[in-house]
Simulated scan of single mutants.
Amino acid sequence: MSDKERLEYIEEQVQELLTLADSEGCGEANLLAIYNDMIWLIEQAEKVEQLQRENEKEQKRLRNQIYETVEEKFLLEKQLRQAQAKIERYEKALKGIKNDIETDYTQEEIALGEMTSLLTVIYEQAQQALEGEK
């Protein structure tokens, strides 16, 4: 028997007791007080049941919210790792370009127009960095 069924049974029993007391004319005030107390207890039990349903619903909502927050966290961490990798590629490419210029060309050559092969090297390194090649 469920809690609700038991409370309904008790309420019926108290109602029968009141009816019996009325028919015999005895203890009406006591029985009425007991009946009022029983009604109050039943109302309290119903409130508890309602609160338990609301609590379960809120727990489910919070579990879903936690799940969504965890998913968002993992997505943000993945995006951060990708951004960090991109920054590292760009830094490597820029350092490589700087090194190539300093190693392969003198300031005079750069000033004299030896820029075609330099620009080709710079373009290729920049393209590789943008495409994600290492």
Rank of each mutant, 00 (worst) to 15 (best):
C26D: 13
C26S: 13
G27E: 14
E28S: 01
E28R: 02
A29H: 04
A29D: 08
N30R: 12
N30L: 15
N30A: 15
N30C: 12
L31G: 03
L32Q: 10
L32Y: 06
L32E: 11
A33K: 09
A33E: 12
I34A: 14
I34M: 13
I34H: 09
Y35G: 04
Y35I: 02
Y35P: 00
D37T: 05
D37P: 00
M38F: 10
I39C: 12
W40D: 13
L41A: 14
E43K: 06
E43C: 03
Q44R: 15
A45N: 04
A45F: 09
E46T: 07
E46H: 13
E46W: 10
K47L: 11
V48W: 05
Q50F: 14
L51P: 02
Q52Y: 09
Q52S: 08
Q52H: 05
R53C: 11
R53L: 15
E54L: 10
N55G: 01
E56V: 02
E56Q: 04
K57A: 15
K57G: 10
E58T: 05
Q59H: 07
K60W: 12
R61A: 15
L62M: 07
L62D: 02
N64W: 06
N64R: 06
Q65K: 08
Q65E: 14
Q65D: 10
I66S: 02
I66N: 01
I66Y: 06
I66G: 00
I66E: 07
Y67L: 11
E68P: 00
V70W: 01
E71D: 14
E71T: 07
E72S: 07
K73V: 02
K73Y: 03
F74M: 07
L76S: 10
L76K: 11
L76N: 09
E77I: 01
E77L: 02
K78E: 14
K78A: 15
Q79M: 15
L80H: 01
R81N: 11
R81Y: 12
Q82T: 05
A83R: 07
A83D: 06
Q84V: 04
Q84C: 05
Q84T: 02
K86N: 09
I87C: 08
E88R: 04
E88Y: 02
E88M: 04
Y90V: 05
Y90Q: 07
Y90K: 04
K92M: 05
K92P: 00
A93R: 00
L94I: 06
K95V: 08
K95Q: 13
K95F: 13
K95T: 08
G96K: 03
G96I: 02
G96F: 03
I97P: 00
N99C: 10
